[in-house]
Design a protein around this nucleic acid. Structure first.
Lengths: 343, 343
DNA sequence: CTGAAAGCGCTAACAT
DNA sequence: ATGTTAGCGCTTTCAG
């Protein structure tokens, strides 16, 4: 059986408190005492029972992170960032995925899957304001991704409209005149809507078409969805000279289709993605993409949880994370100096 | 403050035990009583404190999963499989990453990062048998990936040697005569060594060269490492007609280099990867790859932990998971019927 | 079928 | 500087 404080105390011939003091590095312990207790700890192989400590202190040291899916490398990389940021504060991360389904997101937000946590970081897709309104759970919740919830929760997000506009501006600046958008999610997803809005605003202000025929809706946000959307658009007879995709996997799926149809990227159709996943840097045509600062997002999310946990930050915060547009071959074409594999 | 069993008991005018019985769906509770208690539970919004339950029962309902890195989509997909398998047994998953560094792997195996878990699933890279020999931790440990540890822990793995042989056999069957191996990890990694061994065995038995000049060692296992290794090999003047890479990201990195150098895949050089990540199905040239059954691996790992937790399975098990070779354009060339995006 | 009470292992007052 | 003790919220004998 596991050895407890009591066992160590008995072995060392001291009280439980003294052992606890040593374990917790209390100040007022004589070196001799510390030495003696430590010897017993080592001899018995004592390891503190964190569950008991948690019960006592009301904190578990665990943050839950709920993402739509791990198969999308953006979320995988984000998870890594959160794990590292949490580790910096001696927190560990419980990971869950929702599939981007509203039901799952509601369950997670109410803590049905994990009730042993100090805080929750949730990246919602379909979740509505109303779903959160009567949230009974009292652990801090931080939302990832831009939303217009009128609710008292911290948000961490980049400015999707501005980022989408920057992507489209880049395309327009290269002389593209018919820019399609792939990935306006069916059933509505706020980040997708915001990117569509940015796409539309930028095109409109440039006096270029932004009609619905240039927008392809999808059910998911994977490679296959991007490929299917590209096929559908081409099959309508519409032939844009540029594509802005909701994310990189969809952009890459679309590029695959263009390649199969003998259309050249970027000569015939330029492509811009979103998220800057590693994969985009190593294709036959490297992918221009909006690159959110994932480390910052992960760090800010963890810090938000911890701040709220310690009673700081009375006002719900909307934090804007940085992003930048990384220009690669899918818009610029093959360069002489090969920097295709660079960041 | 949080409401406890005691509060509910007071509110319902019954004892704590009765409330506990209702919460835990005990058999012998009169419907009237159950009704009454349930009403109080709802009125107060009672939620059981899992930490307390865990302390009492000695189980936390948490499994830790420690992977080398999440950026590699294989591990991300594997994590998803483990989360789902765990959920099927009402377990949640604590995720950690080791970077494949021995020190981190040792720390994880000894539970330094997470001591609130019922079991640990670890996918080691550099960890040695000796590192595990004096493991004081008493939670069940299941190892992912083929190893020759002579230690009493469950292993879940595919047969790397056989899988590598199948990949090479496929290349040889297509008439390739000089097959390089990319990704023999510097500093030694057992799975990498086993794949090298399978590569060598198959080539040798086919009477083909398998000298060290055909093997490129790397420090990591990402796209960039595969690209760098490919560059080094080509720069030695060696011009293989096929490449077998340790994993898909490295294969894709290598293909990028071949593309930059104007070498055609598969006409000039055929490429086979390992892990069958989604990304490999959507490049300009889709990637032939060894496809491990990730769902099975995740499920078997979780089941191993739970079996050991319930005192079953006295003997440490070595479980072989399935794999298959998925043949795509990087070895077969562009097909007429387009099945490039299929599994 | 329900109530009382002990105790899981730990921390934090409080006492010495 | 060290010891005593209550109690975190729950489950679980053991009574009734």
């Amino acid at each position: 059986m596991r050895v407890s404080l009591k066992d160590v105390a008995a072995h060392a011939g001291v009280s439980i408190k003294t052992v606890s003091n040593v374990v917790n590095d209390y100040q007022h312990v004589t070196p001799a005492m510390r030495e003696r207790v430590q010897r017993s700890i080592d001899a018995l192989g004592y390891r503190p029972n964190l569950t008991a400590r948690h019960l006592r202190k009301g904190r578990t040291g665990i943050i839950a992170l709920a993402l739509p899916e791990l198969g999308n490398p953006y979320f995988a990389e984000l998870a890594a960032a959160v794990i590292d940021a949490a580790a910096a504060h001696d927190y560990i991360v419980l990971l869950d995925h929702t599939g981007g389904r509203r039901e799952q997101e509601i369950l997670v937000s109410q803590g049905f899957r994990a009730r042993v946590i100090d805080g929750l970081i949730l990246s919602p897709i379909e979740l509505e304001s109303d779903d959160l309104r009567d949230r009974a759970e009292n652990v801090p919740l931080v939302l990832l991704g831009e939303r217009h919830y009128d609710l008292p929760y911290d948000h961490i997000a980049i400015d999707n409209v501005a980022a989408a506009r920057a992507a489209v501006r880049h395309l327009v600046g290269l002389g593209r005149r018919e820019v399609a958008f792939i990935g306006a999610r069916r059933g509505g997803s706020e980040p997708a809507q915001l990117r569509v809005r940015g796409w539309r605003e930028e095109l409109t202000s440039a006096g270029l078409p932004a009609d619905d025929g240039l927008v392809a809706a999808t059910d998911g946000w994977g490679h296959a969805d991007g490929a299917a959307a590209m096929i559908r658009m081409l099959d309508t007879g519409r032939r844009p000279d540029a594509v802005f995709a909701y994310n990189d996997p969809m952009a890459i799926g679309a590029m695959r289709v263009l390649h199969e149809r003998g259309l050249r990227v970027p000569e015939d159709i330029a492509v811009v993605g979103f998220d800057d996943v590693v994969e985009g840097r190593f294709g036959a045509v490297t992918l221009t993409s909006v690159s959110p600062d994932k480390e910052a997002i992960g760090r800010l999310a963890v810090e938000s949880v911890l701040a709220r946990l310690s009673g700081q930050a009375p006002e719900p915060r909307r934090v804007r994370a940085d992003y930048r547009l990384v220009e690669r071959e899918s818009t610029l074409g093959r360069r002489t100096a090969d920097d295709g594999t660079g960041g």
